[in-house]
């Protein structure tokens, strides 16, 4: 068993709010510089940039969890990750079918582009990615677990786009691999106000939109190796795999 440093909430250049410096190449080199071993790629309602980040990460020994930050119908942000290319593709189709057909205005919201290894733009997403999808929180939760994914409601401490802001409190039938507390608070601090969150594994991530923020907070995970299955086990605390500390 070995300790791995994991920051599981990072936006790329594809998110309208992601800085143009958040190219896959820059994200991986910044994560390497900060000695982060595992990163999660979570653009708003799209997985379009995941495969390149994963490929570049592999070359540098950084494991990349592939997923998205979904905006549910209730405007709650949730991280969803999937293990293989097929599940990720199916997830992308699900997102595409449920994203409203509203055009992005890059001057207001920012550019939404996919770039290649040489930072050439290879695709521009025309639909505004930060909109709420038509997927309810419950439907998203079911979809993720039917496809053996990892489900993490994001920044639950924030009074914007969180379970608490949108739905008042944790739904009684909520199932999640972990709850994320933002870098503005901490799992320890937020559970003083909301002790009920302690019944879930708690993590913290950078929610980076700029390279500087990558690894500004992270979780130390005890794993046999960096893999999807091992990370899921660590969140659940199975067979010695565990979250040692959010930092």
């Amino acid at each position: 068993m070995k300790n791995y440093r994991a920051d599981l909430h990072i936006h790329t250049i594809l998110s309208p709010c992601g800085d143009l410096s958040m190219s896959p190449v820059n994200i991986i080199s910044e994560a390497a510089r900060k000695q982060i071993d595992i990163i999660g790629i979570t653009d708003h309602n799209s997985t379009g940039q995941c495969s390149l980040v994963r490929k570049l990460g592999r070359d540098k020994g950084i494991f990349v969890l592939q997923g998205a930050e979904v905006t549910t119908k209730e405007e709650v942000h949730c991280l969803a990750f999937f293990e293989n290319t097929d599940a990720l593709k199916y997830f992308q189709e699900y997102l595409d079918a449920n994203l409203p057909d509203m055009q992005n205005d890059p001057l207001i919201f920012g550019d939404q582009v996919v770039v290649d290894e040489d930072e050439n733009i290879i695709y521009t997403e025309e639909r505004l990615l930060s909109n709420a999808t038509g997927i309810s929180l419950e439907k998203l939760q079911s979809f993720v677990y039917e496809n053996n994914g990892i489900f993490i409601p994001a920044h639950i401490d924030r009074m914007k786009n969180s379970i608490y802001s949108q739905l008042g409190f944790l739904p009684e039938n909520l199932k999640a691999d972990a709850l994320e507390v933002s870098r503005r608070s901490s799992p320890g601090r937020f559970s003083l106000i909301h002790p009920e969150i302690s019944s879930f594994p708690l993590i913290t991530n950078s929610d980076s939109h700029f390279p500087d923020y990558i690894g500004s907070v992270f979780n130390t995970l005890c794993l046999k190796e960096a893999s999807f299955g091992e990370i899921k086990m660590a969140l659940a605390g199975i067979d010695g795999r565990r979250i040692i500390s959010p930092c």
Partner: peptide
């Protein structure tokens, strides 16, 4: 416009 079951608890 919310339809989630938390509305009833609230």
């Amino acid at each position: 416009l919310q339809t989630h079951h938390n509305i009833l608890a609230v």
